[in-house]
């Protein structure tokens, strides 16, 4: 029997139908590690959204008397309770005890609360940088690949050009420039608006832009390559033969097919975005204090590494665990979706 006949037979038997997407989801669910990664990521998102609920203290509250507390150490803040009476599971407000689950930093701020609030920074970087690079890369790559010819050639030469220069140091300088201008104030309405926006993003606006700007290049190349291969596909020619215009072809046929691989690439790129934010914050270019970023926390704790390693280790563990979860999830998504979304079974 030919394979054709077999497929037809199977087809007539099975009642329900699955899209390639559903197929891939099923495959993904079978990968336990990847599912674990995804659950952890979802959990962290939950923690970030409800950070005030999960954090025992105000992340910015300084308490110089209780600085550099060791993890699980209880401290007396009202002086009427002895420190030994307090345990880490005591509800601080009720008992007048305070326990720093992960210790406190040099300014006496509760490290645990800061780590919890730090999830917001890392996740918003993951979200913002991937959306920025996805949108720019998708639009740029689609236009370039679809237009073809000299337009494509010129647009890709620009990408090559940007690939050929060390963007990171230049972007660091741009961040410095932006910070300096915003400290000084400006009478240009655009700059003022940007500064406002930056403040509302906890000083991270430029880091968002910087990371997005560093990473749209790869996405644009990927999108262009995909568009080039899909626009020659016969289903696109079929649509044209039916009288479809450019808009119909782009939005109905190209983007739905290009988006999948791009989303997978983004999910694999997220760990890089998180690292880059941490690195920029570590060298003092990220968040403005007292907003807690894990990179900035490592920087703050670093000088006291010898006596208080926990000030570095806890944010480090948080950073690595979240990244690990994203890596497991991204690998699983790639394995499950990459082949399936290319239209073969």
């Amino acid at each position: 029997m030919t394979t054709d006949k077999k497929i037809e037979k199977k087809n007539n038997r099975i009642g329900e139908s699955r899209s390639p997407l559903q197929d891939a989801m099923r495959e993904f669910r079978r990968n336990k590690i990847a599912v674990g990664g995804m659950i952890f990521v979802i959990f962290v998102i939950f923690v970030a959204v409800f950070a005030p609920v999960f954090s025992p203290y105000d992340f910015a509250q300084q308490n110089l008397r209780n600085n550099r507390a060791k993890p699980m150490e209880g401290y007396d803040i009202t002086e009427s309770y002895a420190a030994e009476k307090c345990h880490w599971y005591d509800t601080p407000m009720e008992w007048g005890c305070t326990t720093f689950i992960a210790g406190s930093d040099a300014l006496g701020r509760d490290l645990w609360s800061r780590i919890i609030y730090g999830t917001r920074i890392s996740l918003s970087i993951a979200l913002a940088a991937s959306s920025v690079s996805l949108v720019i890369g998708l639009i740029y790559g689609t236009v370039s690949g679809y237009a073809g010819g000299n337009v494509d050639n010129l647009m890709m030469r620009l990408v090559d050009f940007l690939y050929g220069i060390p963007l990171l140091p230049i972007i660091i300088l741009m961040t410095v420039y932006f910070n300096a201008v915003s400290r000084q104030g400006s009478d240009s309405p655009i700059v003022t608006a940007l500064i406002k926006l930056d403040n509302s993003a906890g000083g991270l606006l430029f880091v968002f832009i910087a990371i997005g700007a560093l990473n749209w290049l790869g996405m644009a190349r990927l999108a262009r390559g995909q568009v080039l291969s899909y626009k020659e596909k016969e289903f696109v020619e079929a649509a044209r033969a039916l009288g479809a215009g450019n808009g119909h072809v782009i939005f109905k046929h190209l983007i739905p097919n290009v988006l999948g691989p791009l989303l997978i690439a983004e999910s694999m790129a997220i760990p890089g975005y998180i690292f880059l934010e941490a690195a920029l914050s570590f060298i003092g270019l990220g968040v403005s204090p007292p907003t807690p970023s894990w990179g900035a926390m490592i920087n703050e704790g670093y000088s006291g590494l010898r006596s208080n390693p926990h000030l570095v280790m806890f944010p480090g563990i948080a950073l690595s665990t979240l990244t690990l979860a994203f890596n497991f999830m991204g690998d699983g998504l790639r394995d499950a979706f990459d082949t399936r979304l290319r239209g073969r079974n």
Binding site: I33, P271, F275, A278, A279, F282, G295, I298, Y302, L305, R306, P309, V312, M313, G316, I317, L319, S320, T321, T323, L324, N327, F328, D331
Partner: peptide, 25 residues
């Protein structure tokens, strides 16, 4: 493969201080 994924998840920013504390301090 598992160890490889774990190590790509530990950036220099974390591994450096960890090494320093363990082997240096």
């Amino acid at each position: 493969t598992f160890l490889a994924v774990v190590s790509v998840s530990i950036p220099t920013l974390v591994l450096g201080p960890l090494l320093i504390y363990t082997f240096g301090v």
